[in-house]
Design a protein around this nucleic acid. Structure first.
Length: 427
RNA sequence: GUGGGCGUAGCUCAGCUGGUAGAGCACUCGGUUGUGGUCCGAGAUGUCGCGGGUUCGAGCCCCGUCGCUCACCCCA
């Protein structure tokens, strides 16, 4: 029996894992620099949290949740998204009773039992933020800008931001009335009609030509916004423009989770295959109340790290992958005695923060140098009997090939060598 | 849940109208005394996804099955 990873999971192993790590850390860094604090959450929750929070009619809840019974007979679900769990924690620990807004970020694995496809996995990785307790359009823009900053810092260029407003409850019910009337006159198959009853907005996102052409003349929610919704959305656009964040209005944008209201947005990338969304989010006015907390509004996003990685690779924003987290130094010992010398030396260097590894096994000099090359280390250093006894060695710059004599002295923790390496890093 | 494509060496794949398996990359060693990348030489590696059938003979044909993948529904 040969074991295989479960269907539809993404795994990252060297060398690509360092690219994944970089993407994740950059997205997190953007959240942190925007003033969000970490909230560390469980990957499973009470099933009802999601049926109530995400919405019982959504596809996520009806057919995509990993749900099981734990030993105490409780129904448990692996989290399919982050906001519901974050709100639960905020309410449970009374963060909503402190100073507002509450600004938190999270990251980790999420789970949806779907048929896998390019960029769509059953276990996927997300970095998200939530800002709770403010109605101002400024906070909408701040959240969007935080996501945008992450993408920009990674060097992405070809992504696009799409925004819309789902309005307040009055806007939506006015629109729904018109939309239901319109849909009643369409030629739809049974499954689609059922879907339309649960949430008619979903039909805007259908990719089938027969539906698309019929929906072309459907009444748009944006045309039904109340005065306050309209003005909020307008301010969001103004501020985005002022910040130089390009966007397009997608009046047909649909999100898969029921809790979204008002400002809603999605970042899309053209090079990912069918799943073009790399991140998205929006405002959720009723969610906190629905989950038993104070009736506060919030806004947040979730960014798919797996997809952003694909986007980065499609755009070629990384250089050689092995350079991403490459070693500073690679030691090539000759013979057993110098191997011991090398192990001791590495500990000394690591203590001062030098990233160092060495050739193990009994490799020839050529083999050792080859290993040094493959490791991607910036410098190599051969240690034989001569070096260990004289305390003098040649550091070789692996890129330029130039060598330099340097003192290696255990008693000062190889100070000269580590200095040399750090100095060369600055350049 | 529905539909398409594909399963041959670690990876990417070739294998003509059936005659019992190959390339490139990667890997290891070497090209005479201690310096990698290029070049040259040598070497190791496969239950040709699995099960059954047709045939003197199946990687190739047929049936089934499992897996991967892409797309639809939907979504990060």
């Amino acid at each position: 029996m040969k074991f295989q990873a479960p269907k539809g999971v993404s795994e990252y192993y060297p060398p690509r894992s360092s690219a994944f790590e970089l993407v994740r850390d950059e997205l997190i860094a953007a959240a942190k620099v925007s003033g969000f604090s970490l909230i560390e959450l469980p990957v499973f929750e009470d099933t009802e949290l999601f049926t109530r929070g995400v919405g019982a009619s959504t596809d996520v809840v009806t057919k995509e949740m990993y749900t099981f019974e734990d030993r105490g007979g409780r129904s448990i679900t692996l989290r399919p998204e982050g906001t519901a769990g974050a709100m639960r924690a905020v309410i449970e620990h009374g963060l909503d009773k402190g100073q507002l807004p509450v600004k938190i970020w999270y990251s980790g694995q999420f789970f949806r039992a779907e048929r896998p496809q390019a960029g769509r996995y059953r276990q996927f990785y997300q970095v998200g933020v939530e800002a709770i307790g403010l109605q101002d359009p400024e906070i909408d823009v701040e959240v969007i800008a935080a996501a945008d900053r992450g993408f920009k810092n990674l060097g992405l260029k070809r992504y696009r931001l799409e925004i819309t407003s789902l309005g307040d409850a009055a806007s939506r019910s006015a629109h729904r009335k018109e939309l239901d009337l319109f849909l009643a006159g369409l030629d739809l198959d049974e499954a689609t009609r059922v879907r339309a009853q649960l949430n008619p907005l979903r039909l805007f996102d259908d990719k089938r030509d027969s539906i698309r052409s019929q929906m072309a003349s459907a009444p748009l929610l944006l045309d039904f916004l109340t005065e306050s919704s309209r003005s909020h959305f307008h301010k969001v656009q103004e501020l985005l423009t002022e910040l130089g964040i390009a966007f397009t209005i997608n009046e047909r944008m649909v999100r898969g989770l029921d809790y979204y209201t008002g400002t809603t947005f999605e970042f899309v990338h053209p090079d990912l295959g069918s799943q073009s969304g790399i991140g998205g989010g929006g405002r959720y006015d009723g969610l906190m109340g629905e989950l038993g907390g104070a009736d506060l509004s919030g806004i947040g996003y979730g960014i798919g790290v797996d997809r952003v990685l694909l986007a980065c690779e499609a755009e070629g924003v990384f250089g050689a992958e092995k350079a991403l987290d490459s070693l500073d130094l690679f030691l090539v010992p000759l013979g057993p005695a110098t191997k011991r010398f090398g192990v001791v030396m590495m500990q000394g260097l690591r203590a001062s923060g030098v990233k160092v590894d060495m050739a193990y096994g009994d490799r020839s000099l050529k083999g050792g140098m080859k290993a040094a090359d493959r490791s991607g280390a910036r410098f190599s250093l051969v240690i034989g009997d001569e070096e260990s006894s004289s305390g003098q060695a040649q550091v070789k710059n692996m890129k330029t090939g130039e060598v330099q004599s340097i003192k290696i002295d255990p008693s000062d923790n190889y100070l000269q060598l580590s200095r040399f390496i750090f100095d060369s890093k600055v350049r």
